[in-house]
């Protein structure tokens, strides 16, 4: 399975401006968040990117994408009908191909040479099946994420066969349905924000839309019921720009993971010393 297309969603009413923010990337170059994300995607070998945006945001996004604008197309989400609908807006773009799905307000830092996107694509291509990136998450964060239940793939440290997907579960439900052996008590595998999905997901979303409202987690739950669907606990971290101080934390993470690490550390120490004074 070769993945050549990616979909970035950026149409959420509170998230529209976040991908446009400028940050300094790991190489010390100021870029928009969208450009950093697109850079990671293209570096992993994907040539076509669709960005789902609010109608009217196309130009601003094209400008923010910089050199990657050429590989991008912008798909407006005509009505704010939720995340599942936003993803489905790209159905025409993905067609019969598998695709990478990510969100415009998250950036990722990897703990290895390979980027998070590259790690995930490698797993999908080797496993020939859809894969979602996951991260062990404390139960107190359950109200923010989709979460999976499953079992570890034999012989693999970080791969799981997904059995069920529940969007924002309560801890009660999580404890009953999502406990994954091997994780620390009170921790669950929650979505990381990157998935490699297959056309059937778009079909399910389409059916859901026809019936009323589309919801990605339940479409993924159906995928898990129907076919082999893996979760990969990536060696990396996600950074949510939308959190309180999210931009600051993301910038620090990029700085500390990149070539300017010493400079950033000195800056922090200096700030600390000054604030104590």
């Amino acid at each position: 399975m070769k993945v050549t297309k990616a979909v970035i969603t950026a149409a959420g009413k509170n998230q529209r401006t976040l991908p446009l923010q400028t940050l300094v990337d790991r190489d010390g170059v100021p870029k928009s968040a969208l450009a950093i994300l697109a850079g990671e995607i293209t570096a992993a070998g994907i040539g076509e990117i669709a960005v789902v945006v609010c109608p009217g945001d196309e130009d601003a996004y094209a400008a923010a994408a910089g050199p990657f604008a050429r590989q991008m197309r912008f798909i407006p989400q005509a009505e704010p009908l939720g995340y599942g609908h936003a993803v489905h807006c790209a159905a025409g773009f993905t067609g019969d191909d598998p695709f990478l799905l990510t969100v415009g307000d998250h950036l990722y830092t990897s703990r290895t040479e390979k980027s998070c996107t590259a790690q995930l694509l490698e797993t999908a291509e080797a496993g020939k099946c859809p894969v979602s990136a996951v991260q062990a998450t404390h139960e107190s964060k359950l109200p923010y994420y989709g979460s999976i239940g499953g079992r570890r793939v034999a012989g693999s440290e970080r791969l799981y066969e997904i059995e069920t997907v529940i969007e924002k579960p309560t801890p009660t439900e999580a404890e009953q349905k999502l406990v994954v052996p091997g994780l620390r008590a009170g921790n669950y595998l929650c979505f990381f924000g990157i998935h490699v999905l297959v056309p059937s997901v778009m079909e399910t979303l389409g059916r859901q839309l026809a019936a009323g409202r589309a919801d990605l987690s339940s479409a993924l739950a159906e995928t898990a019921r129907r076919e082999r669907y893996l979760a990969h606990e990536l060696l990396g971290r996600r950074h949510d720009l939308d959190l309180h101080y999210g931009l600051l934390a993301t910038q620090l993470a990029l700085g500390l993971a990149g070539k300017d690490r010493d400079e950033v550390l000195s800056l922090l120490v200096e700030l600390l010393a000054q604030s104590n004074a």
Binding site: K141, P171, A174, E175, V179, G186
Partner: peptide, 19 residues
């Protein structure tokens, strides 16, 4: 009993996952 355990682990309001 599964479904009861998490409540014994929770010791701070910031950890409260219920809404």
């Amino acid at each position: 009993v599964s479904g009861n355990q998490w409540m014994f682990r929770m010791g701070h309001p910031a950890d409260q996952p219920l809404r």
